[in-house]
């Protein structure tokens, strides 16, 4: 598997890992002490470090049966708190390529999108069933299909949602926004002429 997602993303396939819990914040996904670096490189080993310490080997990210998983299944408000992009970077460097959950915090969602990691949502009861299946049979292979908007395995499939904007960006490969933004350089310059606080508040 390539280290980073690139180009259009139509689907993500692989085994799944479930991390249950509400309001799992980015301090838990990657504790602040690991932010003391000028690069993201080492983060893969440090993902969920304190939670893993607390569970001494029992955390899903430590369990042998979940190693190699690429689809993360979570509950509500996942990724709340700090804006640190280190959180999705750490998940991605561990091997996660898609997240499916009840809901996501906005900054986390945007950070995932900027890395090409789809975040799909499904109803709470559905997520519970998916988590139960992942738990029962961790080796099962799943596909998050962005065209058909479903999460499917050989035995079951569940509808999921992704907002149209992010969905289009992922499927067209335009999820890295920089070049689009740069294309509008002249419009940015024109807009700057109209903003009062850039022009000594003179009327124009």
């Amino acid at each position: 598997m390539a280290l980073f997602p690139t180009g259009p993303i139509q689907q993500v396939s692989g085994t799944a890992i479930s991390v249950p819990g509400e309001d799992i914040d980015t301090d838990r996904i990657i504790p602040a002490r690991f932010l003391k670096s000028v690069s993201f490189e080492a983060l893969g080993d440090q993902v969920f470090a304190d939670d893993r310490l607390e569970l001494s080997g029992d955390h899903p990210f430590d369990q042998a049966r979940y190693q190699g998983a690429s689809i993360l299944v979570v509950n509500g408000n996942f990724g709340c708190g700090s804006s640190r992009e280190h959180a999705p970077q750490a998940l991605m460097r561990w091997g996660i390529r898609a997240v499916v959950g009840v809901s996501f915090a906005e900054i986390f969602y945007g950070n995932c999108l900027a890395l090409g990691i789809p975040c799909a949502t499904a109803a709470p009861e559905q997520i519970k069933s998916i988590q139960a299946q992942v738990d029962r049979e961790p080796g099962r292979s799943w596909t998050l299909d962005l065209a058909g908007l479903q999460l499917a395995s050989v035995e079951s499939s569940w509808p999921v949602s992704i907002d149209p904007g992010p969905l289009d960006m992922l499927r067209s490969g335009r999820w890295d926004a920089t070049s689009q933004l740069l294309d509008h350089g002249p419009q940015v310059a024109a807009l700057m002429q109209t903003l009062p606080y850039i022009n000594k508040f003179a009327a124009n």
Partner: peptide
């Protein structure tokens, strides 16, 4: 607040993609 990819975008273009 924004993530690091967006910090890059703002540095490069003084703008970002938002909903």
């Amino acid at each position: 607040g924004i993530g690091t990819s967006q910090v890059r975008d703002v540095l490069a273009s003084q703008s970002l993609a938002m909903n």
